[in-house]
Each structure stands twice: as C-alpha cells, then as structure tokens.
C-alpha cells in the first residue's frame, strides 16, 4: 500500500539516506578511533541532510552540512587532535556490571516504544493542516521565505535569545580554556 504511492526516485533517495544514516551511526559507536568516529558522524549528517532535501527543507539541509559537518565536527576533530587522543578508553572493561546489556535493553525499549506509539497514534496519517497556531506551509512559496518570515515574526524573541545564548557559549568556552592556562602558568 505504501510503496504504490511512492515513485522509485523518492524510494531510491530514502534508501540511500537511510543507509548513510544507519551505517554512519553504527560507525560512530563501533570504531575504536575517535577520528574515524567523527568521520562516520559526517556520513550520518550527510544522510540526514539528504532526507531534509527529500522533504523540501532545502535551507535546513544546507545548514546541516555547513554548521554540523563544516563547523561542529571540525571543532570535535580539532579537539581530538589538540588533546592528542588517538584512541579512546577501552570500552570492553565494565565498571558497572551488565552496563552494555542494560544499555542495549534501554535502547531497544526506547525504539520499540517510539515505533509502537507511531503505529498506535494518528500522527502519521497525513492529516493536512491540522496545525495549531503555526504558519502553514503555503504551496508555491519558497520554503526559505516562509522559514525566514516565521523566524523573524512568530519566533523573534526566541531568535534574539539564541543570539545571547551563542555569545554566552563563546564567552564560557574562552573562559574555560583561558583560566586553566593561567593556573598552569602560576604553577
């Protein structure tokens, strides 16, 4: 039933995105080198960006590549190389007995519960414009235009607060890095 309404290019894009996402995510949690884990994270991010494109979120797909893959992962790679951590601590030792088993059980319960909720609820039945309060997606209008209008009208206060948040984060990071260096000099 589902496949009949889907054209094969859409299906191909979805399968590609899903493969990128799952392979990259499994790589993040399975490889033993943090640099390789960061590169696997980039694979996942490209998959997510691809699925954003498929769902007509063009701006967010570009931001996903530029901000996540271009800035955040590069920042993580900088820190990995700055610290000189070429291998992460051994995951095989278990200070907590059965931690991996409990973690796996928790993840399975989480995923199973989410999928069960999706199957039981009516969220995914495609009820059009059941929106409450938000700006509906007008057809024929650019997605970036609508997103910009939404950010700068409805969510203007939140946008300004994020500006303050970014300043605070940058100042906090500088302070964290600088104060320690001064104490080392004093020693």
């Amino acid at each position: 039933m589902l496949a009949l309404t889907t054209t094969w290019p859409d299906l191909l894009v979805f399968v590609t995105a899903a493969a990128l996402i799952v392979v990259g995510a499994l790589g993040v949690i399975s490889v033993h080198n943090p640099v390789h884990a960061a590169l696997s994270l980039i694979v996942t991010l490209f998959g997510v960006a691809l699925s954003f494109l498929e769902q007509s979120a063009d701006f967010l797909a570009a931001v996903e590549i530029i901000v996540y893959a271009g800035a955040i992962v590069v920042l993580i790679l900088f820190v990995i190389m700055f610290l000189g951590v070429d291998r992460h601590p051994r995951d095989e030792v278990e200070p907590l007995v059965g931690q991996r088993a409990f973690a796996a059980a928790g993840a399975v319960v989480t995923v199973g519960g989410l999928i069960f909720l999706m199957a039981k609820s009516h969220w995914v039945t495609g009820v059009m414009s059941a929106s409450t309060g938000g700006t509906p997606l007008a057809s024929g209008q650019g997605e970036i235009t609508q997103l910009g209008q939404s950010v700068f009208t409805t969510y203007l206060v939140a946008f300004e607060v994020t500006a303050a948040l970014l300043i605070i984060a940058v100042l906090g990071a500088v302070q964290l890095a600088r104060r320690d260096r001064e104490s080392e000099v004093e020693q």
Partner: peptide
Amino acid sequence: TLSDIAGQTVVFFVMVVAAAEVTVGLG
C-alpha cells in the same frame, strides 16, 4: 506531513543550541 513551517523553525533553533552545547562541552 502537517504542512506547518513551525517544525522546520524548531530544527533551526535546535541546531543553534547544539552548536552552543558542543562549544561548551568541548571547552
């Protein structure tokens, strides 16, 4: 699915918060 741009707006803000979180976390 719901034809509501608010979902994409939230993603925009989540990305900003994620950037701030990674900055402080790495610091």
